[in-house]
Write a protein that binds this DNA or RNA. Structure first.
Lengths: 344, 344
DNA sequence: AGGTTATCTGCAATCGTTCTCAGTAACGAT
DNA sequence: ATCGTTACTGAGAACGATTGCAGATAACCT
């Protein structure tokens, strides 16, 4: 309860509050030493609230993510945290994949934070009006909203990643290549589907509706999608799964059904997993540096903030990379084709 | 820049600011409808800073964890997030296993948050003085400091979990049971070591120094520890690894050395892994509900806050559970013993 | 010595709320 | 008609810091 204010310190030293304030902001004042001592003795801490009110700045940057238990977003947060610096802190909002929560949280953010780093749930809608309306700085990370180009962003080259993944399967001789995708209302969902389609086209493989399942980036969704693919009459020989959680789900499904990887089906995932090397077979994936994305987003935000918000939107793109392990092989069917060159 | 204040609203409607303020806090006032309209038209949002200054409350609860990329802590955060309610938010601090960062962050927290939920880095020291000094409410989760009983806490029955794990190995016939532990300066590190020792004693197995490695809860640490164990003249036939990250490291080490699980060595981990079922063999672990721990911690905090801080410290204990999968088997040596009953 | 800087000082206004206090109007009871 | 009660009102003082302003002091130059 001992709420020591700047006035108490001033009284103790015998100077005005202004002097204490100036000392605190780095000016040289007369009784430096005594002030320092008094602050320590009284255990004085400046009131953040009062400072905020006066300065209009809070020293807090919000990070809004759909799901903090997703290692990818956890790494983004960690990267941002590592770059935030000493005089600012991070406010975390976990929207739990709920538009409603996202909206509500966002509206609470105004006045509490200096800026928002955000992976929006959907790009279908315009950016929440308060961003433009109140001039609350925002940096999009991993995903953007429809009018996203108006704000800074740090994205992955999703289309390229998906294309590399699909090309990789094609180069192994696969023709029946399915994709378990994310919601096409999100940036990564859409772009990865685009990349998959582009690769198919380049490989002169026709896109089949039943080989493309739009799921929801969740483990349960990946499980269900894989089950669905296995029930098709002519099941795919290879599957590109568009994120880590769905990949886990798909692997669980295959395991439960006793389908052998990569003998019966090849799998390539998007986003590396901590345990990708440990599972059997080790999982081949498209990887990218999530930590870097978070860090870059924070850099952009800080730059913007330190510039007094006068900067132009900047768009940064993080590269993707194929990590070959053991979950892709030649298709079973095409092996058959080689052994008896009769059937189609 | 349109910084609309309560005064603007008051002017617009033609009443005093007090009336607007009262309307905002739920009282019935005269021109309800006009006020509502004015607020929407002007797009007025109350200034959080001013409210904080006046009320002394911020509506923000801090969560301080060592490493957000550790799925266990991510789940704790998620659990807390899910319970925080609509009128409060979470401020995340990731200390990155650095005492210095922890200390610095903590000192910045005062005045910015109403309370702190925290997994401290070490229990060697007293709780940071400002907790008691300023009366900033705190709830410890997973770990406590030396004087932790003075504050509410949500812990796991670490000793019991470790004992179950070790018992389990003993019941499989293992006698050469090693442990890769966490820092004994932390609650979980110490308690799990205690449980291991207790189980050994009960099984009448003498504790060997070379079978107990005090590591650091990191993947790299687990890797190194496992390597060290493998180089012992009489290497253990089973290892209890005291957390998820170290387990990953240990598994990587075994994989790199080509040691087969569970044929050559049995492994049991503490804390479940999302991919525990997918790795080969599926990993047997001691599991607990991290989300629940976070949720309970938040409950305790909110209860405390809503009570005006008048509550007694409460201590809650979350149960552990053995999840049998496939990483433990009979020891190799003892199989040999059975086949030729000669040696030792 | 007198004038000019340079440096530091305290006063007081300010940020946007909340909250106490005194006051007013309406209404029913006496 | 007076009183008490209820239900609301506005003025103005906080909350704890920052900052423009004018004044004070010391240092320096001619």
């Amino acid at each position: 309860m001992s709420t020591v204010t700047i006035t108490d310190v001033a009284k103790r030293v015998g100077v005005s509050v202004a002097t204490i304030s100036r000392h605190l902001s780095g000016f040289t004042v007369r009784n430096q030493e005594q002030i320092r001592e008094a602050i320590i003795e009284l255990n004085y801490r400046p009131s953040a609230a009062a400072r905020n009110l006066k300065s209009g700045r809070t020293g807090i940057i919000a990070i809004v993510v759909p799901d903090i238990t997703n290692p990818f977003f956890a790494s983004i947060v960690e990267g941002a945290e590592s770059t935030v610096g000493e005089d600012r802190m991070i406010l975390l909002v976990n929207t739990g994949d709920s538009r409603e929560r996202e909206e509500k949280a966002l509206s609470q953010l105004f006045g509490r934070v200096d800026g928002v780093i955000m992976a929006p749930l959907t790009e279908d809608e315009e950016s929440p009006s308060f961003f433009s309306q109140f001039g609350l700085p925002i940096v999009f990370v991993d995903r953007v909203t429809k009018d996203g180009e108006k704000f800074s962003s740090v994205l992955t080259d999703n289309a390229k990643g998906a294309q590399i993944a699909t090309d990789y399967l094609i180069s192994h001789g696969h023709r029946k290549i399915a994709m378990i995708g994310g919601p096409c209302s999100t940036t990564p969902g859409k772009k990865r589907a685009d990349g998959y389609r582009a690769a198919l086209k380049k490989g002169e493989i026709t896109f089949l509706n039943e080989y493309f399942i739009e799921s929801d980036f969740s483990e349960a969704g990946g499980y269900a999608a894989m089950c669905q693919l296995l029930e098709i009459d002519a099941p795919p020989t290879a599957v590109f799964v568009a994120n880590n959680l769905m990949t886990m789900g798909a692997l669980h499904a295959l395991r439960d059904r006793g389908v052998s990887i990569p003998r019966e089906i090849s799998i390539i995932g998007f986003d590396d997993l901590e345990c990708a090397e440990l599972i059997s077979p080790p999982l081949t994936v498209i990887a990218r540096d999530a930590r870097l994305q978070g860090s870059q987003a924070m850099d952009l935000m800080i730059k913007h903030l330190n510039n007094g918000g006068a900067t132009q939107p900047e768009h940064s793109m993080v590269d993707v990379q194929l990590v070959e392990r053991g979950s892709c092989a030649l298709p079973r069917k095409s092996q058959k084709i080689r052994s008896n060159k009769i059937d189609h």
